[in-house]
Design a protein around this nucleic acid. Sequence first.
DNA 1: CAATTAATCAATCGAGTGATTAAATAACAA
DNA 2: TTGTTATTTAATCACTCGATTGATTAATTG
Lengths: 196, 196
Amino acid sequence: MVVRAELLAAARQLFAQQGYAAVSTRAVADSAGVNPAMIHYYFGSKQGLYEAMLTDTLSPLVERLGVILAADDDSAAIRNFLKLYMHTLGANPWMPQLILREVIQEGGRLRGWFIQQLASKGGGRLTQLIEREQAAGRIRADADPSLTALSLVSMAVFPFVAMPVTREVFGMRVKEGYLERLVAHTERLFFEGTSP
Amino acid sequence: MVVRAELLAAARQLFAQQGYAAVSTRAVADSAGVNPAMIHYYFGSKQGLYEAMLTDTLSPLVERLGVILAADDDSAAIRNFLKLYMHTLGANPWMPQLILREVIQEGGRLRGWFIQQLASKGGGRLTQLIEREQAAGRIRADADPSLTALSLVSMAVFPFVAMPVTREVFGMRVKEGYLERLVAHTERLFFEGTSP
DNA sequence: CAATTAATCAATCGAGTGATTAAATAACAA
DNA sequence: TTGTTATTTAATCACTCGATTGATTAATTG
């Protein structure tokens, strides 16, 4: 099963970097140091390899999201979500790339499963939490909950997508301490921007 | 030259939707109702077609950005930037997709030219404007200017990238009036979140 | 008008694609 | 050991890819 794992790892890196169509099965096999026929043996097809990789990679994220956002009694749920989400993306640079490629693609390959997960455990739940904070008077009532959730996700995800050009475009040195400063900055901007 | 223009239009739509590698020259030619050899005739290669299309599509955006952000004497420059940028992206749905594909790609095809433009006329300039607003006391001084610019761009761009899944994930109906509400919401969240 | 250039087409080249097979090897149970 | 299954390899199939050619037509020019 070591071959299978190496194929998944190589696939994750290459597909995240270059996208599905740009990566050949031979390239994945070579990168994994394995015979190309192994893809057919373990996953049936290139498509099968991609889907297995995507499920493998994104399932933990979705699951963690669900746990955090399900905490109904925790009044800091939104803060926790923001921190966990950004730290997870920061620690796994391929995640935002894979997610975004799936989202952009018209006929996304795992759109059905993944988007459904994002909706039920992600955006929808986050919107509910924001509505609850509004009811509790900690977020101003005239803010549209869905738009507010969208803004929060935007600020949480986009910086990692833009990471490859952050240095050049925004003149920032992305090194030690950057993630912490980014999270703190985002947290403050969001909560001050939505306070009553 | 009508053939050339039709090739550019078809290329823009297909490349934005599916990405460079996933689109064959034959697909572009067919979509344009033209012989595949015309790509070689007018653009030399698939690469040439792509670069011509990208320059054609993104140049106006970069130029408009430059004009807005160059307005040194206009204290509403940031507001103007936000509005113009979001309305432009809203009116040209392929823009955010093309931009993002370029940004994500490790060896982006026009990275050199495009990122340089974004840096000199976009992010860098925006950061300067934020610093000026801080000096004027309209944005709190303890906010990192670069991170603040990044947050603003995040909220301005990401919603359009996420458009294909906005309805499902955030439970929003994206129809008439959405763009206006989104811009107003973003504007308020940003300026209240950064006020002293 | 003839001569030249621009534009378009059908056809095809070699390279690389995803996929598959039959044979060889490794791992393991009896 | 032997028999059986799981894994791996080399080789190759049918196909699509980007690119290009030579021939042909349309437009422009002298």
